[in-house]
Simulated assay, not measured.
Amino acid sequence: MTRTPSRRVAPPRPSPLLSGLLVVLALAGSLSGCSSLGGTDEANFVVGDGTVVQIPAEERTDPIEIAGPSLEDEPIDLADLRGEVVVLNIWGSWCNPCLAEAPILKEASEQVDASFVGMSFRETSFENALAVERRFGIEYPTIADTGPGVLALGRYAPRSPPSTYVLDTRGRVAAVISGAITSAGTLEDVVEDVKADDG
C-alpha cells in the first residue's frame, strides 16, 4: 500500500489590520498596570476593573488575622473589630488608581456604617503614605505594612492595589472589590448586602 505524503499547511497569517490591533491591545495592557516607583523591583501590576465579588455566608473562610502598627505607630488589630463590618482597603502611595479612589473612600468612610482600615502594599515610604492621608483628609488608620501582611487574606490576597475587602462581623472575607472603587454608593450597597447576609 502506497502512502501519500502528507502536505504541511502553513497556518493562516493574520491580516495587517488584525496584527495592528493586537499590538495596540498589548500596549494598552502594559500601560494599565500600577507601576511601583523604586524599592519594589520595578514590578508592574495589573489593576482590577472594580468588579465586586460577594461570598455567601456559608462559603466564607476563617476570620482574617491582621495586626500591626499604624502609619502613626499606633497598634491596630482587626480582631478588636469583631462584631462590626470592616472595610479593609489595600493601597500604596505610589499607585495612581489608589490615589484616584482616595477621595471616594474618604466620602464612604463618613457615610457607610462600617469600620474602615487601610493597609499599605509594597510601600516605598511611610512618609509618602502619611502625606497621601493628609492630602485627602483620611482619618481612618492604615496598617504600615510593606506587603507580606496581605498573605493573611489567603486565597483572596491581592495581586496589586487597590483592592478592598468587606469583612463580616466574624472577621471573614464577605466581599472583594478588585480595582478602584468608583463611588461611595457602590461600597455602601456592598456593606448593606454583607450585613443582610451575615451568618
Score class of each variant (00 low, 15 high):
P5S: 05
R7A: 14
V9I: 15
R13P: 08
R13Q: 09
S15H: 08
P16C: 08
P16I: 07
G20A: 15
L21E: 06
V23N: 07
A26M: 13
G29V: 05
L31M: 14
S35D: 12
S36G: 10
G39P: 08
D41R: 10
N44R: 14
G50D: 03
T51V: 12
P56H: 05
E58G: 04
T61R: 14
T61L: 15
I64L: 13
S70H: 02
L71C: 07
I76L: 08
D77T: 08
A79M: 12
A79S: 14
D80S: 14
R82G: 02
R82Q: 05
E84M: 05
W94M: 05
P97H: 04
C98Q: 03
E101M: 05
I104G: 04
K106Q: 12
K106I: 03
M119W: 08
E123K: 01
E123R: 02
N128T: 09
A129S: 11
V132W: 04
I138Y: 02
Y140R: 05
Y140T: 09
P141A: 10
G147L: 11
G147M: 09
P148F: 01
Y156T: 02
S160P: 00
P161Y: 00
P161F: 00
P162H: 02
P162G: 09
D168A: 06
D168T: 08
R170Y: 03
G171W: 05
I177R: 00
S178W: 00
T186C: 05
L187A: 13
V194M: 01
V194L: 04
K195R: 15
A196Y: 02
D197H: 08
